[in-house]
Structure formats: structure tokens, C-alpha cells
Design a protein around this nucleic acid. Structure first.
Lengths: 208, 208, 208, 208
DNA sequence: TATGAATGAGCTTTCATTCAT
DNA sequence: TATGAATGAAAGCTCATTCAT
């Protein structure tokens, strides 16, 4: 598993580029490699080789490998959370909100930040320590938004009361989150289209 | 030559234990640790320490760390696949089959082999090389069973045609598979109960 | 993840030294140890200890232990091959060439690169795989030069035709190559002197 | 180098054979493997796998891996030494003796004990410790026999005095000993034939 | 006579990180 | 801002050897 570690390759002459480009290049390389091989199996050496930079540059911009992972998550978590809150703020019935939540706050970001989210979903299980408390909190907050939509639907009589709204929310999130494992084989279906399909099934499935 | 390895002089005698117990203890420790920290982040040393055995014993029973992972998967993959085929073989309408598939072939094994499946779902992304081809094939076969149920439902007019049966199947599997990330916080709900809940939502959501 | 390797806390600062000196010191220590104990029986730990360096430094300069062996061979193989070709290029009778080949291309390099050649001669039997194909090819090319001298001698009537020129060449090479096993006990005789002695015996032994 | 270590293979049911056969089978397997991969690079596990026996059997018959090497050498050293003494005992002129020594005491055993001698010649450099003192002594005694022939030739005026008889003896031995590296490619030439060829060259080369 | 589980030191190699320049 | 030599702990794995059975 993730055994094919690359050999150190002697990098060519130091490239002078603008700092932001270097930082971004490192992030991009790391993202690609994390997605392909996993965080643990990706070495800093591989990241810098892939980015055409050096270890020194890496540690100039990032405190640690974990720090980079942190930044990687920050790029989409806030975005996704904002979308969820925006959906929740709309003055519309729960069934419309749920469809929007699935399509706009869950599937659309998955298209936009496919790699980031894929990495996040694979590594999140370890997020217990302090450095990830904040991200964990935001993830929980996101979950809360979905739960809230379900609850509103039940309270307003639009959705039948199938049991715990929380578990239903987990089901909804899982249905969408899991798509990162097969999204690349989804053919002509766009994430948005898939979101509509899933939303349609879920909404009719929950309707009273 | 000129190498005096293993010239044990002051070490205690090797402890004779029940072979089966040793192998099982190693597997159990590995399972727990893989689930908690991930495959890559778990070292063989940690496994043997946890099992109260030695590295030598580990490599006496397993060819490699990966070999153990393999064995770990073998314990449930066949079981789950058999259940899926059993459901498919029943002479019942598609809606009943789908509910059974969700509840019996997806959620029930998740309760029984929670840790094994949790590890599998986290590490499966790397299963591209030959050593995991067989497991990958079985996973694909399982997916095919779920797709088949959806297809039958659409063909018989019980389910509405929401688009690709395959993507719907992925949604169904995702909803259930994802539960391994939150199952421990599911309170009084058993996997079977959750399965019934999910099945109810999905079946009504798909009904024509 | 969840792996805190290299979280150096109480270690002394890395010592900055002359890179070339470090690489050379490692090569020198390896050479000495390989000659004394053999390649297989020499550990990287022993090499770095002997050189007063660390394992990290070793793998900074060499991809592997085998890579070092490779470099070690490269230092003399080309030199020796060049000498053989130079002898062959001279416009002189075969008996003179053979004496020169023995003395200059065989024994002299043995004095200059005693350790390297000693290591090479001991380990060459394994040189079948691709990574040593090049070295093997050069060794074969060297053998070809000696064969060529013998053949010329026979063709020109200077040497008697004792049978296969190739086997005679092997005998000549063996007589010289074997000297690495006893060279250190050769007393006041220099390799050049020994080469002259061997050359004299061989040339008169082959003369028609 | 010698990297391709075999995997442990599960041996079939314990074979009950006569003790001598087991011991001999182990020796034979070890011999083959030592010759192919070297002593250090050959593991006891590989030896027992190759012989279709178990480790327990190995350590029942041999005290250690080194002990086996010892026995391996004992099978030919005495034989070869005896031959050398037998040649020396003949009442014939030195040139005849030298030819006989080369052909009968050097090359002929090489044909008979090719593998054993090949292993011996590769590993002998480490024979400094007490456990090999005896073998080392016999090797030195053998060398002495060859030196004696050369010395007699010079003393009797049959051979010219080219310098140190000892170094000449080393050259003679080297010419023959080296043949183990290429003997398998010697085509239709038998060791005896090669011995006659080498003897002819050496004797005429040394003749006064 | 023979087994094979168990040992534990040692192996080659990798790696995140530091720091003089 | 950036380099890359150096660190040293730890990784996965191998091995000669022991010994209860």
C-alpha cells in the first residue's frame, strides 16, 4: 500500500519565482499526492520534487507537513459552511431547502474542491488533537445545518418522522460525501446533475 | 561470515504459546490500531507491542504488514458478497429487495465487522495493484448486485427512472458505507434499525 | 498523520562539514570494510561509524549500499580498460604486448586500486542483474583485449598454438588477478616487479 | 547484490528419510546456494527450503551455518592436500612434477569439487579466526607443496631462477584457482585438458 | 529424530525537520 | 528568500539460533 515511494531526484538549478507561486505550487503538488497516495504515504521530499522546489522552501512557507494539510482544509471548509448557512437562511419550505442543501452545499463544492475534500474525508478520522479542533468544529457545524433542515421539515409536517433527524442527516451527507470515491467514473453526469438526482430521491423519500 | 547475528547469550527463552492465539492476537491488535490511526500510521512495532508479542512472531505468521491487511479484508468481503447474492436470489419485488439489500447486506455486516469494514473503506483507494485486484473485483461485484436491484425496479415499473441506476446504487451504498464514520455515536439505534430507516427513505424515494 | 517522527527536541545541531569530504570519507570507510569483511557482511552502520558520519548522511549521498559499490567500481574499471586498449594500440610484436599487458594493464592497476579491485573480484560473481550489466560488459571487454594479444601472437607465429586463445587469456588474467589475495605478503616485490616476473614466464611459456 | 531473497514457503508434510540423506541434502542445497549467491547472502531458511527439510533438522545436524561451511571445506581440502603430497613424493624431475601438480592436484580437484572449491575461494579471505585456523593451515601447507616443486626445479637447474619461488607458486596457483570463475564457459575443454595446457605453458615458461 | 513457534538484535532504508550559509 | 547537508529516530523486514514438544 502506497509503497512506490519515488527516488530522490536531483533537482535542477534553483528556480527564482515569485513567493506566492512557490507556496501555491507546493500546495498543489501536495494536494495531488495526498489524493493519490494518502497523507502518510506522501513524503515532503516527494512534494518538493513534484513542485520543482526544495525542502528549504517548503519549511520556509509551512511550519510542518501537518500545517500544510491544515491550510489545505481551510480553503474549502469555510466556503462550504457559508453555503450551508446561506441555504438555511432562505425563506423556503424544508423540501426545497433540502434539495438545495444537497445540490448546492454538498455536491457543488465537491466538484469545485474535489481533491481537497477527498483528502479531508480520508484523513478526518484523526482530527482529535488540538490543531484540528477548529476544523472539526466547523465540520460539526456543517452537520448541524443539515440536521436543522431535516428537523424543520419534520416539524412543519412536510417530512414524515422516520426517527432521528440526526441519523437521517448523516445519511444525506454520506450519500453525497461518498461520491468522492467514484466521481471520476461518473461519465457525463456533472456533480450538479447528480446532486439533483440525489436530492429528488431524498426529498420524495422523506415527504410525509 | 564474520557476522554473529542472533548469537543469543543473555536473552530469556522463547515463550511457547498457542499458535492460533498468537496469530489472532496480532490480527486483533492490528485491526484496532488500523481503525484508530490508519494503516500507514500504524507500525508493526505498535501492533506487536499491543499484542504482547514480538516482531519475529509477527513475521512468522504474516509475510508483511500488507499481507495482514489482506487477511483482514478476506474475513468479511466474502461474507458480505454472499449476502448480496442471497438477497438478489429471492423471488420478491425490487422494493422489498432494496430494503433487504440495505438492511441485510449493507448495514448488518457493518455491525458485525465494523472495524474491518472501517479499515477497508479507508484504505481501498490504493487497491490498484495486483495484490488487491481480487478484493477490488469482489467490491465491484458487490456494487453490481446493488445496481441490479435498482435496474430491476425500474424495468418492472416499481421505481421511477431517475437516471443512471449505477449512480443511484452508488448513492445507496454511500449512504450506508458512510455510517462507519459516525456509527459509534448512533446512540440507541442499532445498525439494523438504521438500515430499516435508510431503506424506508430510499424505497419511497425511488418508488414510481 | 498521528506520526511524530523526527520531532527533534533534545538533539544536538547538525554538523556542517565539507560535502565532498563527507562523501569521500564514506567511500573510503566502505572500501576498507568491504575489503576486510566483504560487501554483504559490512553494514551501513559500520560504514558510517567508521567514517564518523551518520546514516542520514550516507543516504544523502548514496541511493543505496549497492549504489556505493557501483561508484567504487567505476573508479578503476575505466582506467584499467583504457590501459588495455592503449597497450593493444601499440605497433609492437605480440610478445612485447603481452608483457606490457601483464605488467601495465593488469598488475599496475592492482597496485594503484588494490582495495577497489579486491572488492570487485570478490563480488563480481553476482553481477548478473541489470544494475551491473555495464560493469560486466566492461570486464568482458577487458578480457577481449587480452584474448586479442594472444591471438595476434599465434597468428603471427610468435606464440605456439597451445589451444584456445581464450582459455590462455583466462590463465594470464587469473595469474595476475589472483595476486590480490596474497599481494600484502609479497614482501619487497612491487606489483610492477611481480608483473615483469609473470610476464617473463608467460611470454617464454607461449613462445613458439 | 544477492537481493533476491526467497519467500518462506510452507513445506509439505515432514518427510521421513534416513538421517544421512537429510544431512547430505542439506549440504548439497547449501553448496548450490553458497555458490550461486554467496555464504552471507544465503539464509538457513533458504537452505532448508531448497532441501525440503526444516530448520529444526538443520540444527540437529549442524551446530551452525558456519559449521556447515566447515564441513563443506573438509570434503575436499584433505583430498587435494593428499594429491599434492603424492605428487611431491614421486621420484621425477621438477618439470614433470610441476605439470602433474597443475594437472592432477590443482585442476582435477577443481573438476571434482567445483562448487566446494568455488565457495572456499570466495570465502577464504575471512579465515582468520580460530574456527578456520585448521583449514587455513592446510591451505598454507598446500601452497608449500607447490613452492617446493618450484624450488626443486631451480635448485636442480631445470628451472631458471626468475626470483621468488613463492611468488611463482602463487602465480601457478592463481592461474588454476581463477579458473573456477569461468570454468562453466570453457566449452569442450575438460579441466584435465586445461590443466595440461596450463602446465605446458608454465613448464616451458620456467625452463632454464 | 524432527518440528516450527518464538526470539530479539540487526539490517537497509525513509523521513520530518533543523540550520549554517 | 532559499539551499541542501545533516540529523537521528523509527520504519518494515530478515535472520541465526533456541527449545518445548
Amino acid at each position: 500500500m502506497a509503497k512506490a515511494r519515488g527516488k530522490k531526484t536531483t533537482t535542477s538549478a534553483p528556480v527564482k519565482r515569485d513567493p506566492d507561486a512557490t507556496k501555491a505550487a507546493l500546495l498543489k503538488s501536495a494536494l495531488t499526492l495526498f489524493e493519490k497516495k494518502g497523507y502518510d504515504a506522501t513524503s515532503v521530499q516527494q512534494i518538493v520534487d513534484d513542485a520543482g522546489r526544495t525542502k528549504g522552501a517548503f519549511y520556509h512557507y509551512y511550519e510542518s507537513k501537518e500545517d500544510l494539510l491544515h491550510e489545505l482544509h481551510d480553503t474549502f471548509i469555510d466556503y462550504q459552511l457559508e453555503l450551508a448557512h446561506a441555504v438555511l437562511a432562505r425563506d423556503e419550505p424544508a423540501d426545497v431547502l433540502l434539495a438545495a442543501m444537497v445540490s448546492e452545499a454538498l455536491m457543488e463544492p465537491l466538484a469545485r474542491y474535489k481533491s481537497e475534500i477527498s483528502v479531508f474525508l480520508h484523513e478526518q478520522r484523526f482530527f482529535s488533537e488540538k490543531q484540528f479542533a477548529e476544523i472539526r468544529a466547523k465540520r460539526d457545524e456543517f452537520e448541524g445545518c443539515v440536521v436543522e433542515v431535516i428537523r424543520r421539515g419534520i416539524d412543519s409536517g412536510i417530512f414524515k418522522d422516520v426517527g432521528s433527524p440526526r441519523l437521517i442527516a448523516f445519511g444525506v451527507i454520506g450519500m453525497c460525501a461518498w461520491s468522492h470515491t467514484w466521481m471520476s467514473q461518473s461519465g457525463q453526469y456533472t456533480p450538479r446533475k447528480i446532486g439533483e438526482m440525489f436530492g429528488e430521491v431524498l426529498v420524495s423519500g422523506l415527504r410525509a
